[in-house]
Simulated assay, not measured.
Amino acid sequence: MSDPTSNPASACGVDSGLSRDSREEVWRQKLTPEQFRITRQGGTERAFTGQYWNHKGTGTYHCVCCGAPLFDSTTKFESGTGWPSFWDGVNPAAISTHVDTSHGMVRTEIRCASCEAHLGHVFGDGPAPTGQRYCVNSASLEFKAG
């Protein structure tokens, strides 16, 4: 699996021509420490602590790094896990998947396809119609009502 800080899109306000260290510094300035740890270093927030795990607003959830739309509130459901869960993304091209073998298990990591921000993981135990559960860190999202 590639390093999520190695090639973020320049459209996100981070010049891809910069060195890895320079790009990382730009991300550190743009994001809160928690957002940086999760989106750029592949971290996870504790269950039931993120601002969106129990959020009920109507609108769209966007990538906190680049602003790309990722999930619509109509696909959000209560999974009981303590993280925002969605049964589908807004667009198949908006979210990329990668094999994650960290922590002694094999999972499918999900990232923003635009800037490679780590979002969380997807599992095959979600509701119809997709059967998918996109388990997402609140710190990787920005909600826009509408």
Results as ranks from 00 to 15, higher is better:
3 D>S: 10
5 T>N: 11
8 P>H: 01
15 D>W: 05
16 S>C: 02
19 S>R: 10
19 S>D: 12
22 S>K: 15
26 V>N: 09
26 V>H: 09
26 V>P: 05
28 R>N: 08
28 R>Q: 15
30 K>G: 02
34 E>M: 13
35 Q>S: 04
36 F>S: 04
37 R>N: 11
45 E>V: 06
48 F>C: 07
49 T>M: 11
50 G>I: 04
50 G>C: 06
50 G>L: 07
52 Y>C: 02
54 N>L: 02
61 Y>R: 01
65 C>I: 02
66 C>Q: 05
70 L>T: 09
73 S>T: 08
73 S>W: 04
73 S>A: 13
73 S>M: 04
74 T>R: 14
74 T>A: 14
76 K>L: 06
80 G>R: 12
82 G>T: 10
83 W>F: 03
87 W>C: 07
87 W>R: 03
90 V>R: 09
95 I>R: 00
98 H>Y: 13
99 V>G: 06
101 T>V: 09
103 H>F: 14
103 H>A: 12
103 H>T: 12
105 M>G: 03
106 V>G: 05
111 R>P: 00
116 E>P: 00
116 E>H: 15
116 E>Q: 14
117 A>E: 02
125 D>Q: 06
128 A>Y: 00
130 T>C: 10
134 Y>A: 02
136 V>Q: 01
140 S>Y: 01
140 S>Q: 02
141 L>V: 07
142 E>R: 15
142 E>V: 14
142 E>I: 11
143 F>D: 11
146 G>F: 05
